[in-house]
Amino acid sequence: MTRVGPLTTLQDAGRPGWLAHGISASGPMDRAAFERAGLWLGGAGSTAIEFTSGLAFVLEGGPLSMAADGGGYALTINDKAIAWPARVVLKPGDAVDIRPGSWGNWGYLRFGAEIEGELALGSRAANSIAGLGRVLGVGDRLAFGPELERSRAPHPRATEQGQGPFRVIWGLHADTFDHATRGRFIEGSFRVSARMDRMGTRLDDPGGVFAGQRVLSLLSDAIVPGDIQILGDGTPIVLMRDHQPTGGYPRIATLVSADIDRFAQLRPSSDVRFEPVTLKHALGLTP
């Protein structure tokens, strides 16, 4: 690794089933992009490099097949531009360079071989709270197993950035917000702040939807990915893949599963609106 942006980690499909021990499932911030990168390879190793503001590395062995997806990044190999998303076969000595492009916060590299390394509780997914898995930095080396058998795969196709309000289901503590506040929450507009990581994204509330919010003393209760919690000072935070297992701040609503990936890719200053849907409706939604 010759250049590595912040919050660059190894992620696989995640580590579900350990929540009773206080460990959230982690896994890719944009699951669909992670899966697409695997699809372009027609059979990929389980583990991806998840990156943010880009990275660069040199392949020491090889050859090694690789696919890339997630957001719109700018990829070059040996200074030659390659269309995004991509599928390539890297040769020994190839220099790969990825830089931020038109949209998105999270990108994925998957390979036609397994990244070697220890599993923690059955997964290689890094979990920033529990200190599990691998965070990557400059100078790090990844070792790969043998090339996996692959099937015919579709040609990489670009995904458009989704638009429109984010669909939510009213949350665990929606009833602790008064009618007027709930109304402002769905009529108002929020803005993505620069304070985001794998645990969650803080929103700016320029309309003051939660201004003057009473500080509630609530019993600590279960958190799920996509929960929108309101801090005591009125700051909304959308909790993401490395969420705390439980928390005591009120949760007004929860993003539907189909919209979590799209939310993760919103850059700072993006406007965000929320639209409540019923549970039955949520299950039929596509991103």
Binding site: I169, G171, L172, L218, L219, D221, A222, V224, P225, G226, D227, T254, L255, V256, S257, L279, A282, L283
Partner: peptide, 17 residues
């Protein structure tokens, strides 16, 4: 018994401990 998002079901025996 209430939904927590579209993949969670919470069985709540109290709002205080």
């Amino acid at each position: 018994i209430m939904p927590l998002g579209d993949r969670g079901l919470l069985v709540r025996f109290g709002t205080t401990l």
